[in-house]
Amino acid sequence: MALNPEHQLASNSSFERVTGADFTPAWFEGYRVNLSATERRATTLMTRRTVKKDWQAAWLAHAITCIDLTTLAGDDTPDRVRRLCAKARQPLRDDIMTALGLDALCVGAVCVYPTMVNHAVKALEGSGVPVASVATGFPAGLMPLSLRLAEIKYAVEHGAQEIDVVITREHVLTGHWSKLYDEIAAMREACGRAHMKTILATGDLQTLGNVYKASMVAMQAGSDFIKTSTGKEAINATLPVSLTMVRALRDFYQKTGQIVGFKPAGGLKNAKDAISWLILMKEELGTRWTRNDLFRLGASSMLGDIERQLEHHITGRYSAANRHALA
């Protein structure tokens, strides 16, 4: 379902940062999600809408601006991060940019581990591309809260403007919603001015009911974004899960007037995925929610596919990966 026309945001509207709400279980207790109906909507969203030709190219170029270009691997090194940052500054080849009639285009952010933040900040200096850092014992989050909060502060001190935190799944699986609220609220406080994206690790939460409830708690606790996955769970971002999360986000907006962003992450590999999630955002929440201050795609390999698709759009020939710079 979409937003009421009176709730639709104008395409250029600005908004206040999320402040959260008191812990209010009534907003999610007893909330039930029908799996089959959610899956059906998710599937038919993609068969009901499509973009072709110039529109497809434009949507893909737009998608680039929403990408959190990510490296979260054990073998990350400063040089690896610098390479990624270079790509973030210049995601498309100049000739493709020219052919599309674009003069400036960057990704939404670069997302790294805390110890890589300072390298990324340096590499992105002057580009306007923010550095996002995962924190709080990513990906499992099973560390003492004090250490997790310290990790957030560390990343922020090193220049991260966005912090992607993970939640304690135990609190969801055991229904300890107030503990979850307190934990996320503490993280938000630790983030300070940095924007906080709360990763629900939906693959671990399993049911869509849990996903909805965890989303609502995360927003009540002041998350700027809610995010599906770490990329390390067995099941990453799926459309039904995303649909459930954006519906929670809509409900939160209608209750509080506060505007929360959404970030699917993990398993998003190709250009088609980018279009699919943009359609989801546009149909369920409206066009304003497709902009990169409210929508991010957590992905590492998606950009390469988008580049190939865009080159094909321009030349009419199918492209190869080696024609585009590595991330």
Binding site: S11, K52, D54, W55, A58, A61, T65, L102, T287
Partner: peptide, 14 residues
């Protein structure tokens, strides 16, 4: 233009 569409994010003809 591509730029316009990126701004409007509308669906073109299909």
């Amino acid at each position: 233009s591509i730029k316009d569409i990126m701004e409007k994010m509308d669906y073109g003809p299909a």
